[in-house]
């Protein structure tokens, strides 16, 4: 915890959001953490590194404003600033979209580092949304990053891939890797049908930075193209807490167990009947 207040804190921090497995919530996490940091007054640049399958623009609700993209920047078709889309809802929040019509080989790790170095001058936080897999897209995404948020769900396949990713990050010299457990269902944990957050932490053995409960509001927020961080719903609160911890604050974990257990107890009566 203490090294989060290192002297580097004054400079900008580059965070890659990765998972190995697809569909566990990398893009949702990138969007919410980025938006949350911007809401606290930080200057944030979100970069979608998933070339060919861009999604972050849609989750952020900025898909209609794309003119240039990451590949254009790398190939010199435009300046870095021209590819940045400003999110009008939050001052200080920008998105660099990825290209939809190209593939992962359009960018190299070296080129990514160059773009990030340029962006570091203007932003407090640069958040890289990593594609699924461990191929070149992954290598591009982690190349310029200082720390990683590893997203997983409490499922065997996602945890296995997360373990592989953590091994690869370690091999690439990452010192700070934090775990986000997404889509946890306390009702299932209680009846022994889902691994608890403690089970997942024991297996992956990296520090926990967030537990996001399974919440239908995430789907609704994605439908609307507006990240739900800070909103009055379980996932919104959980993401706000992740943002606090990313900033190095000690934030207690929400007790989903209490709230849900009462609720399931009430609804359980009707289910049994």
């Amino acid at each position: 915890m203490e090294n989060q207040f290192s002297p580097e804190q004054k400079g900008s921090e580059v965070i890659v959001v990765t998972s190995g497995k697809g569909g566990v919530g990398k893009t949702t996490t990138s969007a919410n953490v980025g938006t949350g940091l911007a809401k606290l007054g930080k200057k944030v640049c979100l970069i979608d590194t998933d070339i060919g399958l861009r999604n972050l623009d849609v989750v952020m609700g900025l898909e209609n404003r794309i003119v240039y993209n990451l590949v254009d920047v790398v190939e010199g078709n435009c300046r870095v600033k021209q590819a940045l889309i400003r999110d009008k809802r939050h001052p200080g929040l920008y998105l660099m979209p990825s290209a939809q019509t190209r593939d992962k080989t359009a960018v190299t790790p070296g080129q990514m580092i160059k773009v990030i170095e340029h962006l570091k001058e203007q932003f407090d936080y640069i958040i890289l949304d990593c594609p699924a897999g461990i191929e070149q897209g992954f290598q591009n995404a982690i190349a310029g990053a200082d720390r990683a948020l590893v997203v997983t769900t409490p499922e065997v396949s996602a945890i296995r891939d997360a373990d592989r990713i953590i091994g690869l990050l370690e091999a690439n010299g990452f010192k700070q890797m934090d775990l986000i457990i997404n889509r946890l269902r306390m009702d299932m944990v209680r009846r022994g049908d889902m691994m608890s957050s403690q089970d997942v932490v024991d297996i992956l053995a990296i520090p926990l930075i967030g537990i996001i409960p399974d919440d239908e509001n995430v789907v609704i927020a994605t439908n609307q193209g507006e990240p739900l961080v800070g909103r009055d719903c379980p996932a919104g609160q959980a993401y706000a807490n992740v943002v606090g911890r990313v900033l190095g604050k000690e934030v207690p974990y929400l007790n989903f167990d209490k709230g849900i257990s009462f609720w399931t107890r009430v609804t359980g009566i009707f289910h049994k009947a």
């Binding site: 065997v156 608890s196 297996i203």
Partner: peptide, 15 residues
């Protein structure tokens, strides 16, 4: 055995 325990046992060996 609960499915949670099955998952943990499988992961232990797998990893």
């Amino acid at each position: 055995k609960s499915s949670c325990q099955v998952a943990k046992d499988r992961l232990k060996i797998l990893l």
